[in-house]
Nucleic acid binder design. Sequence first.
DNA 1: GATAAACAAGTTATCGTTAACATAAATTTT
DNA 2: AAAATTTATGTTAACGATAACTTGTTTATC
Lengths: 347, 347
Amino acid sequence: MPRKKPATLSDIAATVGVAPMTVSRVVNQNGYVSERTRERVLQALKELNYRRNGSARNLKRQCTETIGLVLGDISNPYSTELANAVRETLSARGFSLFICISEHSAKEDIAAIGALVNHSVDGLIVATRSNKGGDEYLKEIVESNVPVVVIGRDFQHADVDFVSTDNLLGGFEATRHLIDLGHRRIGFIGATLSGGSSLKRLQGYLKALEQYKIPVDERLVTGPKEAISEVPGYSTEKIGYEGMKRLLSLPNPPTAVFARNDFTAIGAMTAIKESNLRIPEDIAIVGFDDIPIAVHTAPALTTVRQPMHLLGQLAAEMLLERIKTDEIEERREHILNCELIIRNSTV
Amino acid sequence: MPRKKPATLSDIAATVGVAPMTVSRVVNQNGYVSERTRERVLQALKELNYRRNGSARNLKRQCTETIGLVLGDISNPYSTELANAVRETLSARGFSLFICISEHSAKEDIAAIGALVNHSVDGLIVATRSNKGGDEYLKEIVESNVPVVVIGRDFQHADVDFVSTDNLLGGFEATRHLIDLGHRRIGFIGATLSGGSSLKRLQGYLKALEQYKIPVDERLVTGPKEAISEVPGYSTEKIGYEGMKRLLSLPNPPTAVFARNDFTAIGAMTAIKESNLRIPEDIAIVGFDDIPIAVHTAPALTTVRQPMHLLGQLAAEMLLERIKTDEIEERREHILNCELIIRNSTV
DNA sequence: GATAAACAAGTTATCGTTAACATAAATTTT
DNA sequence: AAAATTTATGTTAACGATAACTTGTTTATC
């Protein structure tokens, strides 16, 4: 049994005996239709199981009322919150959201962005890690006049708005908290060379050390061995675990560590416990993000909370503005504050 | 500065001085085009920053080579793995993937499915929790001939394939493992009345008790107080925590618990530790899913691993088959085995 | 050298929907 | 009762891309 072709407006019109336009008016609930006609049309719509063809509609209307969100790692609650905030904001304005994931490479970034653009989304929010190939492609897209907003990642372009947490300040405060507690040998876990948010966190760490006149010991700053772009996001527990192992094997290990995010911190905690050291008595630890599980680690994790919901909301609002008016001349930036949440992994 | 309209095939054709069809042939790399013409066209494409209009193309071709995936809770690594497997499988066949999330309600389910269908996706994979409103809408969609596959959720329909883990067996084996260790008072955390996968896990639990002639004590089976559909996915640590608190307050608390998933188990572990009880000596605990963090809990969590990647892959393959041929008469079902991973939370 | 095959374009019609315009009847206002 | 307005429908022409067909030219084959 071949799949029967979906009914079109004309099919409905033919069975009812009206013009396609009349059916369109019923479907879209605009224009004048008599009650009698409307009912007959509605009947036919139901019977033939009509579903309007989005491509045709989008083509005619020259907009899709859909925006695309490109995420790197969706298993992080950070992404979830972000996505939800974006969806809520859009939904309130009648837009829908398609999410694409690009977990590994520039190739996937390009594929994801390409797929969305090919479906004529009205705009794009990009929250992946920056990478050369992906950024070049994104630049092309921007220059073909697709409205774009980026979240928490580098992308300098006059037509692209930017929203992020103040990762520098967050890193600074996390480190200062440890310094305030008397720590002088403080490690950093999860350093990367790419210009993402964790680089800012590392800079915050360095800034705090500098301000408190604590010399930087490069051996205390550790990152994944592989290029970060090769590592799927949720394996960062592994990075934390391995990084901590390396720090513990030093002749003079740190008394406190700041991990680039909570997953990394959790991996590090495992390594610490395996060495039969106590948290925070022997080694204190601070994470970043405040994922829901942070209250459930043993001990509960001190961490820096990001305003994820607000990030998503702002990004969506800026994008909608860009879509509505073409008159935004300048790149707009929002850098939001984050909040240190002190739990038992440090005190 | 008004946003200039994107260039069309005809624009390119006009600047080069050829027919639009020739440009189309260059863009799509099919048909004959002389080397000279091709180069001139490519030049113009680049200069005018041409990007083809997906809506027009999809309309003409009557297919989009895109499929939609509706997920409930994306913050669970389970979803991530699933989504990745689906994407990989599709990508190998030239399809792209749009993900929609519907975290809370039937309304959002409908919105998500609707958005995807309105964009004329070629098929749909639905992995949300079953609910009345959503299911009714999904039925309409299926009956308007959109190919659909569901993952790990109830949906009986002749035209809808189904793939899932054997949650019943998983629940059975988790419970039997506890029984084998000598436990007789075994609790269940996270029971729900809706017909999702966790119901099957509960049934597996009950089956194991029955088989080993252990009487069921209803007070040992606990679930969230609110209707499950109101609870965002990642707060299941909370459900686990609260459920365990309730079990611990019983006059005769269990010596082991089986939690409906790893997040719930993690919440339960927190509650156990707060009561100064030891895991597994005082209370043993088993989770479900084997999320990456399960090795990092203290102690490492015994759990039931789902073949998430395979689930996604199978779902995608079945869907692609349905899209290609209309001759699949029967609902197809794949129920995959899961694997008990024994760690330190039980032994 | 004649015929067939491959190549390089152009032409036409259409996918399904809807904006814009046109027409005509019913209703209200003057 | 005439004019103005509202209501109810129909007609036409795109939106941008492309499948299918046609035309003409070059190259290969017998």
